[in-house]
Design a protein around this nucleic acid. Structure first.
Length: 486
RNA sequence: GGCCCCUUCGUCUAAUCGGUUAGGACACCAGCCUUUCAAGCUGGCAACAGGGGUUCGAAUCCCCUAGGGGUCACCA
């Protein structure tokens, strides 16, 4: 089943909903794994006790599943692997590649603020690099609990070989002896992350660009630990329209929110893939299934620039998917939205399901989201709508409208069959009889039947509504107009 | 502030080794279609951040400047 040794992972921390940036990172990992015939692994980076919440893990998983990004292994939780981190850290201490540090947070932050005042970068001065066993004993007696810091080189450079950006060099002098194990015994991100990647045999670390600056630290850890380095690929960030970091004030940012806005997973996936990646090679196509994207995906084709996401294009893409979606699938996706709008109540009877299907099929042609779809289906389920104000002025309060509508109602009420073609024929013959354009009949009728001036083809609406409702609403509107004139 | 990354239409992007009227998509505008609104079709508007080099020739290679982003935590 797996054609290669490629192993990639998506490693979110359960501190919030799945963000669009994270979702795209997951997607790129997925695409790469499937393109290379490798494995896609899910890992939960939950070493932050303060912010991690178990219910977010469930949400993360639900979002990933909704998107259809299935993983082959995991989820592994870092919180279940704590022993590994302490074991590896202790090993480094024993090998003199790391050391215990007893400096207080106060001392450190003092140094930091001094450095800041002199507008210099603060680097840990190496205070505890060479403390003697006696000193250590003394600190312990004082009740101090140490952290473990990696002993990092003071000179030379660390080169990150990035699949997307090429070689990126960092001066080791700019990297201090950073903490790998906190005083509470938990690992820091830079340590836990690389230990996991190494132990889990990850071959390609594909993650957001914000981690690029941390990568030399992780490579230093890997070197000290004595493992071979995985390959790295840092994908660009997704920014808000003003090029700032994406946040709540910019609208929907999480997969869950996109779901509630009525987007289809295929549309979101397709849209996200195009943020930072394009098949290239002169191919102009932009609509792809997950499989088609996986077949074309290539890390070298991932763009280097941060992208701004455009709700407009997502909306267009979603409307496209709504139109071409398998009807039964679309109905299933739309169910919760129709239920939420109190249009239906599940479980549906057979007949109700068939009706819903017809409704959705006629309405989906001109809506962009499932929310809009449910909203635009209102009059198929309710009689209590009001008439659009402008429409009333334009179509109802025109000479003879009542007469036309009464006649139309009368004509329709005798009909045996009430399909689209039959009613359409009735309307054209009536307009002929009356010597008016069909539009003169159609517009007020649409307003009478739906309360709106825009929507699906009128005769489709009539056929769906049925004879009784159609005639009833026509007469109701006539009465309404008469009353307004009186 | 130090370090790192990035810079093609408003937005997402294409342009194998340097040679293109710099292509496509969304949005926008116009026309067609049409019972409305969409969709669809046709056409239009619109970009190589700036400045130096290298070269016969640069969006593409090098340098500088500017702008944006990231990172420097006992967060991930």
């Amino acid at each position: 089943m797996f054609l290669s040794d490629v192993r990639v992972r998506f490693a979110p921390s359960p501190t919030g909903e799945l963000h669009i940036g994270g979702a795209r990172t997951a997607l790129f990992n997925y695409l790469f794994a499937y393109n290379t015939g490798g494995k896609f692994i899910l890992r939960i980076d939950d070493t932050d006790l303060e912010r991690s919440r178990p219910d977010y893990i469930d949400k993360l998983i639900a979002s990933l599943q909704w998107l259809g990004l299935n993983w082959h292994e995991g989820p592994y939780c870092q919180s279940e692997r704590l022993d590994e981190y302490t074991r590896e850290a202790e090993r480094l201490v024993a090998e003199k590649k790391a050391f215990r540090c007893y400096c207080s947070i106060e001392t450190l932050s003092e140094g930091r603020s001094t450095a800041r005042r002199e507008s210099k970068a603060y680097l840990y001065p190496g205070t505890c690099r060479n403390i003697s066993p006696e000193e250590e004993k003394a600190y312990r007696l004082e009740g101090k609990t140490p952290v473990i810091r990696l002993l990092t080189p003071d000179q030379g450079i660390t080169v990150v070989n990035d699949e997307i950006r090429g070689e990126v060099s960092f001066e080791n002098a700019g990297i201090d002896d950073f903490i790998i194990l906190k005083s509470n015994g938990l690992p820091t991100y830079n340590f836990a992350s690389i230990v996991d990647d190494l132990q889990m045999g990850i071959t390609h670390v594909i993650r957001a660009e914000e981690h690029l600056s941390n990568t030399p630290r992780q490579q230093l850890c890997a070197d000290a630990l004595g493992y071979n380095l995985p390959l790295f690929a840092h994908v660009p960030m997704i920014l808000a329209p003003d090029r700032s970091k994406l946040s709540k004030r910019h609208g929907a940012t999480s997969v869950e929110e996109f779901y509630s806005e009525g987007h289809l997973p295929e549309a979101l996936i397709n849209y996200m893939a195009l943020l930072g990646w394009a098949p290239g090679g002169g191919e102009d196509e932009e609509i792809f299934t997950l499989e088609e994207m996986a077949a074309r995906f290539d890390l070298n084709k991932v763009i280097k620039t941060a992208a701004i996401y455009d709700v407009n294009k997502l909306g267009w893409m979603n409307s496209h998917y709504m139109r071409v979606y398998d009807l039964d699938k679309l109905v299933e996706a739309a169910l919760p939205f129709f239920e939420q709008n109190k249009l239906i109540k599940t479980p549906l009877k057979n007949q109700e399901y068939e009706y819903l299907k017809l409704v959705i099929d006629t309405v989906r042609q001109r809506t962009r989201t499932l929310v809009e779809l449910a909203e635009a289906s209102y009059y198929f389920y309710n009689d209590d709508f009001t008439y659009d104000e402008k429409g009333v002025k334009k179509h109802f309060f025109k000479e003879n409208t009542v007469e036309y509508m009464r006649k139309a109602a009368a004509k329709l009420s005798n009909l045996e069959s009430f399909d689209k073609d039959t009613v359409e024929r009735q309307y054209s013959s009536l307009s002929e009889e009356l010597g008016i354009s069909t539009g003169r009949l159609i517009h007020p009728t649409r307003l009478a039947l739906t309360g709106r001036t825009a929507g699906p083809g009128l005769f489709e609406i009539m056929a769906l509504l049925g004879r009784e409702k159609t005639v009833e609403r026509l007469n109701k509107a006539s009465g309404y107009i008469e009353q307004m004139y009186a």
